[in-house]
Amino acid sequence: MSTTEKNIVLHVDDVHKTFGGLHALADIDLQIEEGKTHAIIGPNGAGKSTLLNVVVGRLSPTRGAVVFNGEVLTGKAPHQINQLGIARVFQTPEIFPDLSVLQNVMAPAFAKRDGSFKLNFLSSLERQTDIRDEAEHILHDVGLYERRNTHAGALSRGDKRRMELAMCLIQHPRLLLLDEPTAGMSRHDTNTTIALLQKIKERGMTKIIIEHDMHVVFSLADRISVLAGGRIIAEGEPEEVRSNPKVQEAYLGGAHL
């Protein structure tokens, strides 16, 4: 592979999604390069989360397809898509409130190790030391190790989000989708999370990140797509996008930038 030839991990190919009469997504064409962090920004209701929903199989596109490493994702079940190596942090934390933090992180690890189903009702959870050690390690990374035995339902919103990040990281996904990963976090935790995500980037994990916080976006993104009204109105390197007048307009005279 030459340095100029890009290795595309995810290709969103001409995707449309309508809800009744509402065009939530239109003509979306997106190519995500291996190892890069691709930010998607845009005002509320732009269709950012909808785009991720289409990728992970929560919604099926009205038209178009999503291709991941040469495999068509459209029509596959969410667990199959995850098994191909795509993990996601949701906009509102999606966790297992009745389980402990440690168990929350262990559950996805079983999917990674054993596949989407394994008849493991006679093995002992306690003896899964490999998975537990790794879960503890990752909880350490996200700063939740001390709280590993807490019921996940009792965590603050920001902590839930960090735990959900750990739930994704333990799977070592090839593509990580982050829907506003720092919303609801303190400045300090946001910075820790940025540092963590930068560390992952060094390991070569590809990421799509949706953020309203431009500090986060510009600390992490290699490339930015701007979504407004269901369409991509601009795409490019951070600096290009920052100076794009269309983007400024979409963001109400550039107040955010």
């Binding site: 992970v56 929560r58 079940a77 667990h79 559950a107 989407s116």
Partner: peptide, 10 residues
């Protein structure tokens, strides 16, 4: 649902 997105076929 979360389990499904975590790769487990429930």
């Amino acid at each position: 649902n979360r389990l499904n997105y975590a790769g487990i076929n429930t």
